[in-house]
């Protein structure tokens, strides 16, 4: 479905003679029917990647094809078959839900009886029926996102590119949105979604972790988690800040990451928990509990980012090999 080879995009500011490499050395293939998550913090290059795939941004070098169409030479052919949902709300705030959808149907040549049928179907799907006469501006953030998704689906695209579709949306609406995506995935659509949220990444069949314009790791969420060396221990203690300082210096501790009132300690081996407890009480930290925990994607991601920075930004696989 999508083949990306050594894609690179550099933004040059002509005035300030500065250039920013938004995406570099990106090589990736995505098969039909995948629900692929592009995961990474702000500024990782997710949006730039999706824009290039949507045919609205020229790469500086490298190449990519979407449905067999070249993203530079055949951009218009890609747009015909693509459902693209930009990060920013792309519909017209002063138009009603109906007017917006009719406009998009016109533009994608969804006409006649098929149009009303399709709109009905999608509004059922996204639960926007009661809001057809409402101006898009007056919809809540979550409803706007659902409307934008509806608009991206009117022409039954083979491929959906969704750029952070749930950013700024409340947790309930977020869950609803992902239920819709899961349904789309189940019905055979290819979906590429970018997200800064790890819980969303867990729901993808494959994730690509992006950082500083590079793809660090790309695999199934399970495989990515397994790439985390050693084991994870969850620590609760009276003084987590002191605990973090102490643990960081221990040889068998690979990484320490705070998550609220829990400290995730990534160690070379489960068996080390006794040594860790001893070291903590020696430092005057009262341990409430210290037990093995299943690794989470977030822990893997943060570990990779730290490793990546320490290894001069070489991709993780390369470092391991």
């Amino acid at each position: 479905m999508i083949h990306i080879n050594q894609l690179e995009r550099i933004f040059r500011s002509r005035l300030r003679r500065r250039s920013v490499t938004a995406v570099q050395d990106l090589t990736l293939s995505i098969e039909p029917g995948e629900l692929f998550g592009l995961v990474g913090p702000d500024g990782a290059g997710k949006t730039t990647t999706l824009r290039m795939l949507a045919g609205i941004l020229k790469p500086t070098s490298g190449e990519a094809t979407v449905n067999g169409h070249d993203i530079v030479k055949e951009a218009e052919a890609i747009k015909q078959e693509l459902g693209y949902m930009a990060q920013q709300f792309g519909l017209y705030p002063d138009l009603t839900v109906d007017e917006n959808l009719n406009f998009i149907c016109d533009v994608f040549d969804v006409v006649g009886d098929a149009r009303e049928q399709r709109i009905q179907e999608l509004l059922d799907f996204t639960n926007l029926h009661d809001f057809r006469q409402r101006r898009a501006r007056q919809l809540s953030g979550g409803m706007q996102k659902k409307l934008a998704l509806t608009a991206a689906l009117v022409h039954r695209p083979k491929l959906l590119l969704l750029d952070e579709p749930t950013t700024g949306v409340d947790p309930v609406a977020r869950r609803e949105f992902w239920d819709i995506l899961t349904e789309l995935h189940a019905s055979g659509s290819t979906v590429i979604v970018s997200t800064p949220y790890m819980d969303e990444a867990e729901r993808c069949n494959r994730v690509g972790l992006m950082y500083n314009g590079r793809l660090m790791v790309c695999d199934t969420p399970g495989a990515v988690k397994r790439m985390l060396p050693g084991a994870v221990l969850a620590l609760r203690a009276d003084n987590l800040a002191a605990a973090e300082r102490v643990l960081k210096d221990m040889q068998q501790v690979i990484d320490v990451q705070p998550y609220g009132d829990v400290l995730s300690v990534i160690v070379t081996d489960h068996g080390d928990s006794a040594a860790i407890e001893a070291r903590l009480s020696e430092a005057g930290v009262q341990v409430e509990s210290l037990r093995p925990a299943p690794p989470r994607l977030e822990e893997a991601f943060i570990y990779f980012v730290r490793q990546y920075a320490a290894n001069n930004h070489r991709p993780i696989e390369e470092v391991r090999a």
Partner: peptide
């Protein structure tokens, strides 16, 4: 500035 241009140019309208 409204952010709708990005979505508009991503459609097949000429």
């Amino acid at each position: 500035s409204q952010g709708t241009l990005e979505s508009l140019v991503a459609t097949p309208v000429d």
